[in-house]
């Protein structure tokens, strides 16, 4: 290897490793600062509270990261799909039973993922395609629910929503479990490799014989399944669903992915980073909540963190290329 290439390599590697660790490092810094200034912050109990607060956003963000990693930016339909799946889950569970509700919702999620994947492939524009689907999903949720509140009375569902095995909420267990699995998927599974390669260079992936269109569909299916899990948890916890659930959450999902430092262009990073991004945001929010920071400031800070994270990662990755 020649000298310049070696020089660039060493810079690139160091920065990339740094980028991957940045979320963790920031979490540690905030934790220390917050712990010193806010007594209630640095306790095991509060740590669990933060994981729980991050879990619902985090599960969707993990799913979203597959879409981003596969080179398809973001799906802007996640929150609307969540509402639709929540409504369907409540309807089916109320009419039949819990297993049927879960089964129908998972089938619906897969279907929604595939349909959106087809649309993304046809239009070549994930943002517009999923935005349109978002409107369809929200509209369907509204129609199916009759704009009312759908209640379920199901003890098994309530258990899923409120149980705390070993003192930790089911939502937190699921979040941690999915984060671990998602890391394995990207690092060890064939599909993960296909997602990464499709995102790293779509043309090269096609030229290498990868079925990029199918990979796109599968990434959206995985996102939809994540959304379905969150929809089920939310309905189960409060025993009700309505069509305006999760309104405005898309920003949170995207923020988690970005703060985690996943390359916008795709092909670099792991879903674990999105999970960490969600925890980082929850950490910030918790810190400000405990210090009684006003809502406007809270939004400003979270927004600033997102902008800062994107800028830093963009700079680092720019050097890396």
């Amino acid at each position: 290897m020649t000298s310049i290439a070696i020089a660039r390599k060493s810079i690139g590697r160091r920065t990339w490793r740094f980028a991957s660790l940045a979320a963790v490092a920031t979490i540690v810094i905030i934790a220390v600062v917050a712990g010193l200034t806010t007594p209630a912050f640095l306790t095991v109990g509060n740590g669990l509270v933060i994981i729980r607060a991050a879990s619902m956003t985090g599960i969707v963000a993990i799913g979203m990261s597959y879409v981003t990693l596969s080179g398809n930016l973001f799906a802007l339909s996640a929150s609307a799909l969540g509402a639709l799946l929540a409504v369907i889950f409540a309807l089916v569970t109320a009419q039949t039973d819990l297993p049927a509700g879960i089964a129908v919702v998972l089938v619906g999620a897969v279907l929604a993922g595939v349909l959106q994947g087809v649309a993304v492939n046809l239009t070549g524009n994930p943002i517009i395609a999923t935005l349109a689907f978002g409107a369809v999903f929200r509209g369907l949720a509204s129609v199916l629910s009759g704009n009312g509140v759908l209640r379920i009375h199901n003890t098994a569902a309530a258990w899923i929503g409120t149980a705390r095995p070993l003192g930790v909420p089911t939502q937190s267990w699921t979040f941690v479990f999915l984060a671990a699995v998602s890391w394995l998927v990207i690092r060890k599974a064939r599909l993960g490799r296909q997602i990464i390669l499709s995102g790293a260079n779509r043309e090269a992936a096609v030229a290498s014989g990868l079925r990029v269109n199918i990979v796109t569909c599968l990434a959206l299916v995985m996102l939809s399944v994540g959304v379905a899990i969150v929809a089920i948890f939310t309905v189960a916890q409060f025993s009700e669903a309505r069509s305006n659930l999760f309104s405005g959450y898309d920003f949170d999902y995207i923020a988690a992915v970005l703060v985690g430092g996943i390359a916008l262009r795709g092909g670099q990073g792991t879903p674990l980073q999105a999970a960490l991004g969600a925890v980082l945001i929850a950490l910030l929010e918790n810190f400000m909540l405990l210090n009684n920071v006003s809502g406007g400031l809270l939004m400003t800070v979270v927004g600033t963190v997102v902008v800062g994270a994107i800028s830093v990662f963009h700079l680092l990755q720019g050097k890396n290329r």
Partner: peptide, 29 residues
């Protein structure tokens, strides 16, 4: 640059890209 290499991935992943199916089993690499 356009469709020959995956610039942001390492050489192992580049070289195995056309043979992913051959170097994986049961969906795992």
């Amino acid at each position: 640059k356009r469709d020959g290499v995956f610039a942001v991935r390492n050489l192992v992943e580049n070289l195995s890209a056309p043979v992913i199916d051959q170097v994986s089993r049961f969906g795992l690499m």
